[in-house]
């Protein structure tokens, strides 16, 4: 194992120019993938901040007994994803409306009876603050007996969510594309190295070298290229992030920004190693078929 790493490092040093280009290419790919991930992480962070504010209003049927209303509230509390459930009586709703209308509230005095229904105001549990779960919950609440209508969300928020979804899609597609490009570059480099080493490989085979023994250092080389590229890419990303974060802070820090969570950094790093490994695999498959 150590011998393999040594041999791989020696090889890389012997072809340092080629390897440098490969590592830089992998780094740039990782940088772009990372940038998308970073955007996505911060956009969803922002989103979850906003979704904390949104709630589902469930308007109740008229003529429900207090017991029926209470048991409905209990059922809502028992539903998965529901955080906080608050009852808003029709009287309280009217009061709120009155407060909201200021001078015009006199208009309400002319009403003979309160036209507003009783309602439950439902907030989501933290873990459930995403759109699909949110909509699913709203639909299920709408289906409960005693609920006449639900109201939730705001149009702009939905639009924002849709844009983020689009970005996620583009990000995944671009990520896949750049990962592929990086794997292709690594494959190409390894192919060149294999080509320059073909006599040596043949000799090692004649000396009774097993395939694993012969291929190991090349896999190691791909893995190292991936790892170095990944580390360099993440470092560049972090540098860029610090720069932007400082600018945001100067601007008053109205937006909360954060770097990628540790597990995502690890994931991207491992991903870049996998890319290197795949590059080697492709070349070795092709070149050492015999």
């Amino acid at each position: 194992m150590i011998r393999m790493v040594n041999r791989a490092l020696k090889d890389m040093w012997a072809n340092r120019f080629l390897n440098a280009i490969t590592v830089v290419t992998v780094a740039l790919s990782i940088l772009i993938v990372g940038a998308f991930a970073l955007f996505f992480v911060n956009a969803s962070g922002l989103l979850s901040l906003w979704t904390k504010e949104i709630r589902i209003m469930a308007y109740l049927e008229p003529d429900m007994t207090p017991e029926a209303i209470r048991s409905l509230g209990k059922r809502m509390e028992g539903m998965p994803g529901v955080g906080d459930v608050r009852f808003v009586s029709r009287e309280r709703a009217l009061e709120q409306l009155r407060e909201g209308m200021d001078e015009a509230s006199a208009l309400l005095d002319s009403l003979e009876e309160n036209p507003l229904p009783n309602a439950y105001e439902i907030h989501m549990a933290e873990a459930f603050r995403n759109r699909e779960k949110f909509e699913l919950l709203a639909t299920r609440i709408a289906g409960l007996e005693g609920v006449s209508e639900v109201e939730y969300g705001q149009e702009w928020l939905n639009r924002f969510i849709r844009i983020i979804d689009l970005f996620r899609l583009v990000g995944i597609a671009m990520g896949a594309l750049f990962f592929l490009a990086a794997a292709f570059i690594v494959a190409n480099t390894i192919r060149l190295v294999l080509y320059s080493r073909r006599d040596e490989i043949e000799i090692m085979r004649l000396m009774g070298g097993a395939e694993a023994f012969i291929r190991g250092p090349f896999y190691m080389q791909g893995l190292l290229q991936g790892a170095l590229g990944g580390a360099a890419g993440m470092t560049m990303l972090f540098g860029g992030f610090r720069f932007v974060a400082d600018k945001v802070a100067e601007g008053g820090g109205f937006l909360p920004v954060r770097f990628l969570p540790d597990e995502m950094i690890l994931g991207i790093f491992i991903g870049s190693m996998v890319v290197g490994w795949m590059g080697s695999y492709v070349s070795l498959r092709q070149f050492l078929k015999a």
Binding site: R3, I203, M204, M207, G208, G209, A210, F213
Partner: peptide, 8 residues
């Protein structure tokens, strides 16, 4: 050394 490395 390759001969012997190949044999582990």
């Amino acid at each position: 050394a390759i001969v012997l490395e190949a044999r582990g």
